[in-house]
Design a protein around this nucleic acid. Structure first.
Length: 345
DNA sequence: CTCCGGATGG
DNA sequence: CCATCCGGAG
């Protein structure tokens, strides 16, 4: 029987994800900047969502210096719609660190990558195995699932001890040659994403099923054991403050949902002693956002903006400009529902 | 350790 | 409509 790594790589060359836009080789190696950006985007986010964003991002910020010298607002604007906006803030922060404190030199190993904001064990291992061919085991959710099935491990709640055990097993499977690390890391994640999927695994096309313990005992569905996540109820109110064809937004700066994006302005101050015009209820939305079941009650209030006390974090936009500012996907939907979103290109 | 943060595709 | 996908703060 051929070794695990050999069978995996042979499979990957045919069925794995090749031709990724961040994997163009220059002088035989990958651009660490592009690999870094892509891995940050790929945290918690599927490839299909990342692909168009990555291209936009690189067009706007072609290298680490451009990213470091841009404003956070610009970075967030490109990131808008991807979710988990802390990643964008971390990326911007990391770019400044690499340019200002590290002489534009990227970390050379996983341990050093881990000191960059937003980089943990998985991302550090992914980047370093791609860029430096470092022989470090990569344990993201995909790899974790592959190994749990291979060795019949439930991995309930992924406790520290189980993590260590998986890390040991993952390390044992690594290829001997450093030159195979980049392919190996990519393809073991691809195997998890394409074949050894969370639901409906396609074992019939798995290159390593012959020594997969759960496959051989017809118990693939038992591993890893699924843990149900608890969602919390949450309610928020959005008041769309409108002045003719303009809407008033403000930057979300609190540690909350959509931090650093623009959301409908709250707590309006009016100049002088006049009451605010009354608001009328539009409708409510039920959505699952992050780990909460969210109810958003949407109101509308017509108002003359000249009568309001505005600050620097307020933004006034019309229905053309709205497409060029960073708003949550949900707000985009709401505004489209109420015809405040121009379809003109 | 536990909890939190967004959006999507099947 | 449910499952999925990492890192860090507390």
């Amino acid at each position: 029987m051929k070794k695990f790594a050999d069978r995996l790589i042979k499979w990957g060359i045919k069925e794995g994800r090749t031709a990724l836009p961040w994997k163009d080789k220059i002088n035989g190696s990958y651009d660490p900047y592009k690999i870094w950006v892509s891995e940050m985007m790929l945290q918690q986010t599927r490839l299909s969502a990342v692909l168009p964003k990555f291209n936009q991002f690189i067009r706007r910020f072609p290298d680490v210096e451009k990213l470091a010298s841009s404003t956070l607002e610009d970075v967030i604007q490109v990131w808008a719609g991807l979710g988990y906006y802390r990643r964008a803030r971390n990326l911007h922060e990391g770019a400044k660190i690499i340019v200002k404190e590290r002489g534009k030199v990227f970390p050379k190993n996983a341990a050093d990558w881990k000191t960059i904001p937003g980089i943990g064990m998985s991302t550090a291992a992914a980047i370093s195995s791609f860029v430096n061919g470092e022989k470090v085991a990569l344990l993201d959710a995909n790899v974790c699932r592959v190994l749990c099935r291979r060795y019949c491990l439930e991995n309930t709640n992924s406790r520290v001890k189980e993590k260590a055990q998986l890390m040991q097993l993952a390390t044992n499977l690594l290829p001997k040659k450093k030159s195979e690390m980049a392919q190996y890391s990519q393809y073991i994640m691809d195997l998890g994403a394409i074949v050894c999927k969370a639901t409906q695994p396609a074992c019939y096309k798995c290159p390593v099923s012959e020594d997969c313990k759960s496959f051989n005992s017809e118990a693939v569905d038992l591993y890893p054991k699924k843990v149900k996540l608890t969602r919390r109820e949450k309610q928020i109110t959005w008041v769309l403050t409108m002045d003719r064809d303009l809407i008033l937004l403000e930057r979300q700066n609190k540690e909350e949902l959509w931090k650093s994006l623009l959301v409908p302005a709250t707590e309006l101050q009016i100049k002088g002693n006049f009451p605010l015009p009354r608001k009328i209820f539009l409708r409510s939305y039920r959505v699952k956002v992050s780990n909460c079941d969210l109810t958003v009650n949407v109101w509308k209030r017509k108002c003359i903006f000249d009568t309001l006390k505005l600050t620097t974090h307020h933004r006034i936009v019309n229905k053309i400009m709205i497409r060029k500012v960073p708003v949550p996907r949900l707000l985009e939907k709401v505004l489209k529902d109420f015809d405040f979103w121009s379809d003109a290109s």
